[in-house]
Design a protein around this nucleic acid. Structure first.
Lengths: 156, 156
DNA sequence: TTTGTTGCAAAACGTTTGCAGCCTC
DNA sequence: GAGGCTGCAAACGTTTTGCAACAAA
């Protein structure tokens, strides 16, 4: 129920964005938005495209096109963690979080820290208008830390 | 003078890394390291490769290979700002800074904030061993803010 | 009716890989 | 001498593009 409500708001926001920018309200765009908002965590263009194939006919090009629009309307956020494909996540509702990225296995974990959030959000710049931000903390996840330790032991 | 000193230290650190990990000390690797440390700000693999062509014969593959080694030895940092090529910058000396990324023109500006730095650096995790971090603040640079305003006016 | 948007396939782009020969160790 | 490293070119995977047909405004 709560989720449906939130989706309706998102749809409205998207419509407003499309109208304001003289873009067309195509069924593909709404179908993509709807699917995007069913994701809980990160997703990428390819996975979104493949999952949509099941019940909706869209091209990968349109998926990319629409992700771009959603990005511009601030309904999603884009992450470029490694050199691999870009990851996206919904941005509506603003449950801002940060990311721990393992430099070995590439796994990404989220965390939230009110203090960090406040410090960054209150920062203002004279010649730059802040819209959003990304904090990536790199290091070793527990699994890779373990493995790394064993490897080091062997070398010594 | 000061820079030369610092380069010597970097060279030592790289050598130590190579020896410790049983990698070979090839002239290409040192040539690349030297060039890397002549950059003041960001650079990418392509620009590094092209600039080296002038007085040193290396392949792009070796450039990438060496950047990977420099990354692993923490002598450089890699940034993936947009979907474009990765950007690198030297990391020795640790003058940690954050980045302002314009979402329109893609220009990246650095800034430093002691308070933000402290808050992030003192954060500890139970199951994650922090190595380094990146903070990217997205928004509009002054030029694009100006342009955007004019565009909006037209639309209204 | 106009023209922005679509699907498709081909192209672009940065990066990685396979391989034969070279040069550290 | 052994095998890690090199240059070269071809391959890779993600994203973008060109174009004719389509459909929202």
């Amino acid at each position: 129920m709560k989720e449906e409500n939130s989706y309706e708001k998102v749809k409205e926001a998207f419509t407003e964005f499309l109208v304001k920018n003289h873009h067309r309200k195509t069924p593909e765009r709404y179908a993509i938005l709807e699917r995007v908002y069913k994701y809980d965590g990160h997703f990428n263009a390819e996975s979104l495209y493949k999952e949509m194939q099941a019940d909706y006919r869209v091209s990968l090009a349109t998926v990319y096109n629409t992700l771009e629009l959603l990005l511009n309307s601030h309904l999603i956020i884009k992450h470029q963690f490694g050199q691999q494909e870009a990851q996206y996540e919904k941005a509506f509702g603003d449950k801002i979080h940060h990311h721990l990225v393992c430099t070995i296995c590439g796994k990404v974990k989220e965390f939230s820290d009110k203090h960090i959030r406040t410090v960054i959000q209150t920062k203002r710049f004279a010649y730059f208008e802040t819209s959003h931000y990304s904090l990536y903390i790199y290091g070793l996840c527990s699994k890779c830390k373990q493995k790394n330790r064993q490897k080091t032991k062997k070398l010594v």
